[in-house]
Amino acid sequence: MKKINEMKLTVQAKSVNESFCRVAVASFAAQLDPTVEEISDIKTAVSEAVTNSIVHAYSAMNGNIYITASLYPDNMLTVRVRDTGIGIADIKQAREPLFTTGGDDRSGLGFSVMECFSDKLKVTSKEGKGTTVTIYKKIRGKSVDES
């Protein structure tokens, strides 16, 4: 599919950057004229992905998080969140609701929320190399809402 627009963002894996990342992606998506709920869904899904990289991928090391947001025809938004951290040994298990290795008040819902708040979620990972999460979200926008 032909890419219409793209934004790339690199941040250090620090929790203070979580809000910056989700707001930056939401601002980029604003050109598709999304509804308030769609903006909130995007922010939440991005926040989960970035938090996973910080809490899990880079729990014991420093590193960068690479975000690419792209627009395709028919108001399709994709957000790729990539890290070069420890990777996920068992992706199927990691995506199960309530499964967590995070301990201490982590809900184990990160992937479930990303799935629920997007149209499709792709996760690829290699142990010792890192993880890439791609969020697909079709923006139906205000026109649909009002009709």
């Binding site: 939440t44 926040s47 938090t51 982590r106 819902l109 929320v113």
Partner: peptide
């Protein structure tokens, strides 16, 4: 104004 699954963890805790 914004909450992700960390809020669920906060309530669970």
């Amino acid at each position: 104004h914004f909450m992700d699954s960390s809020g669920v963890g906060l309530v669970m805790g």
